[in-house]
Simulated scan of single mutants.
Amino acid sequence: MRFGTFIPQGWRFDLVGIDPSEQWATMQRLAQRADDGPWESLWVYDHFHTTPVPSEEATHEAWTLMSAFAASTSRIRLGQMCTCMGYRNPAYLAKVAATVDHVSSGRVEMGIGGGWYEHEWRAYGYGFPAIGDRLRALREGVEIMKQGWETGRATLDGRYFQVDGAIVQPQPIQQPGIPIWVAGGGEKVTLKIAATYASYTNFGSANVDEFRHKNQVLQGHCDALGRDHTEITRSTSINVVLGENQADVNDRLARITDRANRFVPESGRERFLEDIAPASPGIGTPEQVAEHLQALKEAGVDYTIAYFPELAYDTSGAELFEKQVIPALA
């Protein structure tokens, strides 16, 4: 199994209490730490407002961070989980990603999806199209990006996007193009897009039975298209709070809960804490979490991206994961 890690950027209230003027230094330090460690990739989220409810807490923009991480790391691959197609013109996005690929010497991954966070869609003036329209726009956008990266130009007279000879030069260092991760588990459309275009998928579920089902649906789409499903790497994301023993786990959860009580608006606090419920598969000792990841591996997971909610304040949980969980699964 391969492993990536999220870098806190504020979206999940994971930089609260750190002065905004110091937040980039924190993110850079953690990115460089990951670059020196066993991780294959680092990730950020493509969102503008905090979740599960918007607030005045800082949320740093994903592609700006991609460029900054590209210049301040040397080995680790750089991804977004996941870029929202509706937030940027796809020809422009192809150009941005190609430039970052050059800055990073060919280390960019393109995580892409249809988008879901209605509040920020409307707040930024994008409206909020129906899910079918968002996914059809996703398909058009991916086609435009692939054209730009593979040929240096993109032309599409689509329903949602129209580009006419958009020049994407320089093309990415990676050829035939930047690897595409299609994120989401929609069975009729999203997984069919993944079967058509993706090098990687991310169903976003750490539930073994759900993952196994989505995997079967993806394979069915690949069979219908005549594509070898083994060409697509399956990934999942997992929230991790790791302790030496149960008492240590409980102490970590208590500290995260205390930060939530101080910084997360009451209207979203319960939903925020659901992500670190004690029964969650990424909460526990290294042995417990490794056992769950082994079950996911047997279900078809090739790649796990770990999110540590305490990372900006305490790296010891990530260190446990690096020393005990990764070697058990790698």
Rank of each mutant, 00 (worst) to 15 (best):
L320Q: 14
T50Y: 12
H49F: 15
G300D: 07
W43H: 01
R262D: 07
E118P: 08
T26R: 15
E57D: 11
K146R: 12
G141E: 09
L93H: 10
D258E: 10
T196V: 04
S267Q: 15
R234A: 08
L273F: 03
G158Y: 12
R12V: 01
T230D: 13
K188P: 00
H119F: 13
A224L: 12
I193P: 02
V103P: 03
A71K: 10
P278E: 09
M81K: 00
G79E: 00
Q175S: 08
S55M: 12
V240F: 06
S104G: 08
P38V: 13
T233A: 14
D302M: 09
G226V: 14
A290V: 05
R88G: 12
A91I: 06
A94R: 03
Q171M: 13
W43I: 02
V100M: 01
W181C: 04
V264P: 01
R107I: 04
M145I: 07
R139D: 10
T315P: 03
W39G: 01
V249H: 06
W63M: 14
L296N: 02
L138R: 05
E61R: 14
V189D: 08
L135P: 00
I283T: 05
H60I: 11
I276P: 00
D228P: 08
Y200K: 09
G317F: 02
R252N: 03
S41T: 13
G148N: 03
I232P: 12
G17C: 14
H47Q: 09
D251N: 15
Y307K: 00
R2C: 02
D35S: 05
A154W: 05
H47W: 08
A312N: 08
V217D: 08
V289P: 07
K188G: 02
S316L: 02
A330H: 09
L273N: 11
